[in-house]
Simulated assay, not measured.
Amino acid sequence: MDRVSTNDGTRAPSGLAMIAPERPRRGRPRNVGLRAAVLQAATDLALADGAGSVSIDAIAKRAAVSRTTIYKWWPSAAAIVLEGLLAAMRDSIVPPTGSDTKGAVDHQLRALNAILTDSTTGPLVRSVIAAASANREVATALLDQWLLPRRAAVTAVLRDGVAAGELRHDLDVEVTVDALFAPAYYRLVFAMPPLDEAALTQLLDTVWRGCTCPDPA
């Protein structure tokens, strides 16, 4: 039996982890109920104590599963925390069908801001970022599982815009990504007021003026 009794009164899995879609993997299929319990436990612990303090032992106890079960599916506590967050937020980097370059970037910019300003996911992201400064495992998971996939998605959109002639041929795509998306993280990390809808529009319009091809004389 994978499930063990802890009798610690923890609540049943709900919220963020419950909406995480199952990803196909080789080998033995995961038990969906146990997986949801583990992801929720990791999320709850990260929100309560910070992502850097979450351990496999603590997750196992709260989720009422064995350590052996957890290690069959995840290599580390950091990987569990990130999977619970990522699975719920994966659609935020997929642009709406039929959107042009600016529309696709606008979608990603507002979706990220919504994640970072949400009362549940915002503190969780902030906790993971804080833990990454002192924990190499968390830092690697944050970079590989969160930042790089999101960055690659918007970079691809911008490069397509360059190829289509919507954006300048000499555009520095990496700097453009930094200019557009760094402000939301900056405000989260330093607990500043988040960007509102009007500020997001102004940010995109300001950066976009430097990205587009100048009108022919």
Rank of each mutant, 00 (worst) to 15 (best):
G50T: 03
E166H: 13
L109Q: 03
G33N: 11
P29R: 05
L188I: 04
P21W: 02
W208S: 09
Y71Q: 07
A36Y: 07
T68A: 15
T69R: 10
A141L: 00
L147W: 12
A63W: 03
L158K: 11
V173T: 14
T68S: 14
V105R: 12
P193L: 06
A63K: 05
V94L: 14
E83N: 08
A132L: 01
R90Q: 13
L167R: 09
A88V: 12
A20Y: 04
V207A: 11
R23T: 09
G84Q: 02
L85Y: 14
V81A: 01
Y71K: 11
Y185P: 06
P75Y: 03
V125K: 03
S119W: 09
P24H: 07
A17N: 03
P95Q: 07
D205F: 00
V105C: 06
L109Y: 02
A191N: 13
P216E: 14
S66A: 02
D144L: 13
L47V: 07
N113R: 14
L171T: 08
Y186P: 01
T206W: 05
D205R: 03
D8R: 15
A87H: 05
A134W: 01
L86P: 00
K72T: 06
P96V: 06
R90A: 13
N7A: 12
R11Q: 09
A199D: 13
L148R: 15
R209P: 00
V175W: 10
A114N: 12
A63D: 02
L39I: 02
A152Y: 04
D100G: 15
R151K: 13
V94A: 09
A20N: 08
A132W: 00
A63P: 03
V154D: 04
A60G: 05
P95H: 11
A131H: 01
A141M: 07
D170T: 11
L45H: 04
A42G: 13
M192L: 15
K72V: 01
P75H: 04
R67P: 00
V175R: 15
R187M: 08
L109P: 04
L142V: 03
D106Y: 06
R209F: 00
E174F: 04
A131T: 01
Y71A: 04
L188R: 05
T43Y: 05
M1E: 09
S127T: 06
D2V: 14
P75D: 12
L180N: 10
P183V: 09
V128L: 07
P193A: 12
R168T: 04
T155Y: 03
G15C: 08
L158N: 11
A42D: 01
E166C: 06
L116Y: 10
A111R: 13
P21E: 02
G50V: 02
S92C: 13
D91F: 14
G52I: 00
H169E: 10
Q108C: 13
R30A: 15
L82Q: 06
M1G: 12
M1R: 10
V38C: 06
I80H: 00
S92L: 15
N135P: 02
A48K: 11
